[in-house]
Design a protein around this nucleic acid. Structure first.
Lengths: 137, 137
DNA sequence: CGGTTATGTCCGTGTACAGTAAACAGGGAA
DNA sequence: TTCCCTGTTTACTGTACACGGACATAACCG
């Protein structure tokens, strides 16, 4: 580690082989349940069999990128957002949405930190209503 | 490019040297305005002078990570979220917030896509109110 | 004038991440 | 046995995000 790191680089996040309990084993379970062979599934997802094998064994430093996980989710009939979160990643469309309002979007997210799904749903409904009624001012 | 990429990897995002107009030049302008030398500023930020030089010239493939930009913002008296967005990144605390509710958070963000700062502010106020009043169910 | 110090820059190197390729071992079917 | 399909291991690749040393230039000081 370099001398430059003494400043602010402290919390690099733990570098676990897998972040929560198990993304890899879950994929393997769903894949086999669907009757896909490793090679076949890898081909459909657009990754190499080797890499898929590593991923399913949690032998990789970090899971695949969001777009690959998206593809997996579609093939397995699972929620893409769920799988992506399980892998410790963020859905690809969200960064653009956040960056479109660099101050207000982060502020909103911090304001809803810790909220329950029900609370979030109510806000989402509010948002839908605001959109439908046109921008009042 | 490998045979495996023919599937879904199409939109890899444009790979521009800098994403929008110019993050590097902006940093340089603010730094010199504050009277910091390149070496001094790099030291305070916790990066190498070399790297800072590259960054300010947009000579890097992609800008520094969010934590370094955060430090720069503090030293320059700029909004960290603003600078981070300008660099095409996402504030470090947001992924955790999103992943805490893998379905509801993305849904909320998509529901507010395209909203004005004013609209977002109203939702943020709603959120604050909900938090203060305790969870009504 | 010559030496020191401060400025920014160029070129090469290193490590982590996100994968690929080739070769391999084991189980069934013909 | 041979063939083929299963999954696995080892080694390699390219890009991102940095660091280090050497360098050119200009200013300052004696």
């Amino acid at each position: 580690m370099s001398v430059y790191s003494k400043q602010g680089t402290s919390e690099r996040q733990p570098v676990m082989t897998a972040q929560k309990p198990k993304f890899g084993p879950f994929i393997r379970e769903r894949r086999t349940a669907k009757g896909y062979s490793l090679r076949r599934f890898a081909e459909l997802v657009g990754i190499s069999p080797t890499y898929l094998s590593h991923v399913e064994q949690d032998k990789v430093d970090s899971p695949p990128t969001a777009d690959r996980i998206q593809k997996m989710a579609e093939l397995l009939g699972e929620s893409a957002d769920e799988l992506i979160a399980m892998a410790g990643r963020v859905p690809e469309d969200l960064p653009k949405i956040i960056q479109s309002q660099p101050e207000a979007m982060p502020a909103l997210l911090r304001a809803v930190k810790g909220f329950t799904p029900e609370q979030l749903k109510r806000l989402q409904d509010q948002a839908a209503k605001m959109r439908k009624e046109g921008d009042p001012q």
